[in-house]
Amino acid sequence: MKINKHQGRLLLQLQAGEQLPFSKFTAPLWKSFFEDGVFVIRQVNRRSKQVKLTKDFPLATYLKNKFGIEELEAYVLLLEGQMEAGSRSRAVQVSGNSKVRGQRTFFGFMVSVIDPVKARLNGQELMLLPTEGAFTFIYDYEGFSLPEDTVIVGVENAENFRQLEAQRYMFPQKPCVFVSRYPQNKDFIKWMSVRNYSYIHFGDIDFAGLKIFKSEYFQHLKGRAKFFIPENLDNLLMKYGNAGLYDRQFDQYQLNDLPDYLLKAMAVLHRHKKCLEQEVFIGL
């Protein structure tokens, strides 16, 4: 599906920090944006909702990986016919013309660790080390392997991925390798599909997070994939739960065919009428 000039303009407005009426985002294109957590919905009153860009969401990376758009503003100007000849030529190259459409510059996924893990890449030893402020990007992922008992933890939010040391208490498994959900592509699932590592999905405990887990991971990995639910979810919801997030998402997602432990977790969310954002786990 292609982003048209009107939709591109809406994205530019959101990128600039504006909030727009929900009624502008009913086209089929926007469904994946909501499912992928690009947008959040703000309930203004009983009849009015507004859409804004999720805080710190890497929109440029998302548009590049999913739509081949490297410069959103140039892409929109090109569609509107406002580019001069020289600029237009450049814009065509960065916005996905017939020669480059669908091609990606980078393949692979980003990993990090709390403790050193000895991996292998294309037959060579690769020591994954915890380095503050830096991560490891695995480009030739088909040649990447880890010890058989490694637990893979998929992290939704950038801040949680950046502050793994502050969340050590939640992941006593060793060895443990953390994988960022962004940049978003299917390379990680392709790699996991031919490996036997256990997978834990660590994300927001809300309806959008459960949808992401079900559609992007559980449907491919089945019993090897678990969603991280803390034992003290009741207490965490009472202390840190977000009622507004619950209200915004309640009618958006139809979730069924989930494992029993996730149905029980959803019942807890409904009992408290709150959801839990992943960032609360940092340094608890």
Rank of each mutant, 00 (worst) to 15 (best):
V94N: 00
V94G: 04
K99V: 12
K99Y: 07
V100W: 05
Q103I: 03
Q103E: 02
Q103A: 01
F107L: 07
F107C: 09
G108Y: 00
G108I: 00
F109L: 01
M110L: 13
V111M: 11
S112F: 04
S112R: 04
V113R: 07
V117N: 14
A119E: 06
A119I: 08
R120W: 07
N122W: 12
G123C: 00
G123Q: 01
L128T: 03
L129C: 10
P130N: 11
G133I: 05
A134C: 10
A134Q: 12
T136L: 03
Y139A: 07
D140I: 01
D140F: 14
D140Y: 14
G143L: 02
F144H: 10
P147K: 03
D149R: 11
V151W: 09
V151Y: 07
E156V: 06
N157A: 04
E159W: 01
F161K: 09
R162N: 06
L164W: 09
E165Q: 11
E165N: 11
A166E: 05
R168K: 10
Y169L: 15
F171I: 05
V177N: 05
S180K: 02
S180Y: 01
Y182N: 12
Y182T: 13
Y182I: 12
Y182W: 02
I189H: 05
I189S: 08
K190L: 04
M192G: 10
M192I: 08
S193R: 07
S193L: 04
R195E: 03
R195S: 11
N196C: 03
S198C: 13
S198R: 15
I200F: 02
I200R: 05
D204G: 10
A208G: 14
G209K: 03
L210S: 06
K211A: 11
K214N: 10
K214A: 14
F218K: 15
Q219W: 12
L221F: 14
K222H: 12
K222A: 10
A225N: 03
